[in-house]
Computed example of a mutant assay.
Amino acid sequence: MTDKADLNTAARKYAAFFEQVTLERVKDVHELISDDVHFIDPFNDVKGRANFEKVFDKMYEDVQEPRFKILDLAWSGDLCFMRWDFACKQKTLGNWSFRGISEVHFDKDAKACAHYDYWDASRHFYRKLPVIGAIIRWVAARAAI
């Protein structure tokens, strides 16, 4: 079992990676993640370092000036929760930002082996799209009290 101090150090390095990531520095994550890392967000469900890196490559294709601000790290046993804000510029959405939380699991070597992002893609993405956004807003209004 990995020492709690080692896990905390690993989580802080992992969080710092997100705050400092650039297209040129995406590969820096390799020293922080396991070979078989599992990543899930509202758009992706991928395994492995190469696919994890492709998520970032795609982000840099789709948005300009992406920025993560890590707000908190919290622990439940060996499980780390990372609360963050994301902001960028996007062609269709303009200036775009939202808050999310990540569930990060670490292996025995203090490498991130699973990273699951939770954020409201309906409210913060799909509702803002032309055409489909109008449908989603209508459905949401019908379901609301």
Rank of each mutant, 00 (worst) to 15 (best):
D3Q: 09
K4Y: 03
K4I: 12
A5V: 12
A5M: 10
L7H: 11
T9D: 12
A11L: 06
A11F: 01
A15W: 10
A16R: 10
F17W: 15
F18Q: 13
F18S: 11
F18Y: 15
E19T: 02
E19N: 09
E19Y: 03
Q20T: 09
Q20G: 07
Q20A: 12
V21Q: 01
T22H: 06
T22C: 04
T22G: 06
E24K: 09
D28P: 02
V29A: 11
V29Q: 03
H30T: 07
L32T: 06
I33L: 06
S34R: 04
D35C: 01
D35I: 05
D36T: 14
D36Q: 14
V37A: 06
H38E: 03
F39R: 00
F39T: 10
I40V: 15
I40E: 10
D41L: 01
P42A: 01
N44R: 08
N44Y: 05
V46G: 04
K47S: 08
K47P: 00
G48E: 08
R49L: 08
A50R: 11
A50W: 05
F52D: 07
F52V: 02
F52G: 00
E53V: 13
E53C: 05
K58P: 00
Y60Q: 00
V63A: 03
V63R: 04
Q64D: 15
Q64R: 13
Q64I: 08
P66Q: 14
P66C: 14
P66I: 14
R67M: 13
K69R: 15
L71I: 11
D72Y: 13
D72N: 15
L73M: 04
L73K: 01
L73S: 01
A74N: 07
W75C: 06
W75I: 07
S76E: 12
S76T: 11
G77N: 11
D78A: 13
L79E: 00
C80T: 06
F81G: 05
F81R: 04
W84G: 08
D85M: 02
A87P: 04
K89Y: 07
K89E: 06
Q90F: 07
Q90H: 15
K91N: 09
T92M: 13
T92G: 05
G94T: 03
N95E: 11
N95C: 03
R99Q: 13
G100Q: 10
E103W: 08
V104D: 02
H105C: 13
F106A: 09
K108C: 04
A110N: 07
A110C: 13
A112T: 03
A112R: 02
A114G: 06
H115D: 02
Y118V: 12
A121I: 09
A121G: 05
S122A: 13
S122D: 09
H124L: 05
Y126R: 06
L129Y: 04
V131C: 05
V131F: 12
V131K: 10
A134G: 15
I136C: 04
I136N: 09
R137K: 15
R137I: 03
R137M: 07
V139E: 05
A140M: 00
A141G: 12
A143M: 14
A143Y: 09
A144R: 14
I145K: 15
